[in-house]
Design a protein around this nucleic acid. Structure first.
Length: 270
DNA sequence: GTCCAGGGATTCA
DNA sequence: TGAATCCATGGA
């Protein structure tokens, strides 16, 4: 993994927090500390020591990586938003530079169908099984040509038919991903939620990570607990109310605040 | 053995 | 609309 290697200047970037905050599942930390995975289908090895160091067996432009990690976005407004909350300042100090990745739309859609009632470790395992079986994370056509039994063998459990049905639809209607990307948030939610195995939470994850709709505010068990603790005196609150709360409070950047909240909650930093 | 995990679909009031 | 239940799987 070395023919092509280069550095990217990334002063306001936290590679570890970005890759370990549960937004992407195809990266693995090597014994030497480098993260191994793929960016837009290209195998990479990433390391951060000052600059972001990239290794790959293939030659490709540095802009691909910069775009993937959304490195040109100015985060100062988001930092102000998070810093305005005293309870969130520790999270900001620890994880400043955590960025939302511009993932492949299909991969995000598929991964978060797999994520339901599951944990990050297992989702990573299933991602690995799929990539090993199909030679890289499978495109919708590859899954459509596959079979529910295969997906179950790879560990998807009851989610296997959900992913299969969604893959069949996307393979038959490839334009639907573009339509979702171009639609405003509310309409995009309606379209994504129509797929089997996708409810409000998975829809928000897919739209946030795969379609870069930053107003999405996914509410999973961690976010539910954190928001209840910080803003509802630990009272019992529904996911629906917490979702509405987050979107109203943090508006167009709710998804970014959510990412810091989620990572800090899981790292026990709240 | 029980509980939990980046929930959703179904059923029933 | 809203609460209860089931769903595969593996780690704690």
């Amino acid at each position: 993994m070395k023919p092509n290697h280069f550095n990217i200047d990334a002063p306001d970037f936290h590679l570890e927090a970005t890759l370990e905050s549960g937004q992407v599942f195809g990266f693995e930390k090597a014994p030497d500390g480098a993260y191994e995975g793929s960016v837009r289908g290209i195998p990479v090895r990433l390391r951060q020591n000052g600059a972001l160091h990239v290794e790959s067996p293939r030659a490709f432009p540095a802009e691909t990586v910069a775009d993937y990690f959304d490195l040109t976005r100015d985060l100062s407004g988001i930092y102000a938003l998070i810093g305005a909350e005293p309870a969130l300042r520790p999270a900001l100090e620890k994880y400043r530079g955590l960025r939302l990745i511009r993932q492949d739309s299909w991969e995000a859609l598929a991964c978060f169908i797999i994520s339901s009632n599951n944990n990050v470790k297992r989702i990573q395992g299933i991602w690995k099984n799929l990539a090993a079986r199909f030679g890289g994370f499978p495109r919708p056509e590859q899954i459509a040509r596959s079979h529910e039994r295969i997906l179950r063998e790879l560990g998807l459990g009851y989610r296997a038919p959900f992913l299969l049905s969604t893959a069949c639809f996307v393979a038959a209607n490839p334009v639907c991903l573009e339509t979702i990307r171009e639609a405003p948030y509310a309409e995009a939610v309606r379209r994504v939620i129509a797929f089997p195995g996708i409810g409000p939470k998975v829809a928000d994850c897919a739209l946030l990570y795969g379609f870069h709709k930053l107003e999405a505010f996914p509410v999973d068990v961690w976010i539910l607990r954190a928001v209840r603790k910080l803003y509802f005196r630990n009272r019992s609150v529904s996911e629906k109310r917490v979702q509405a709360f987050g979107q109203k409070k943090w508006g167009a950047n709710a998804g970014y605040v959510q990412q810091y909240l989620f990572h800090a909650a899981r790292m026990d930093a709240l």
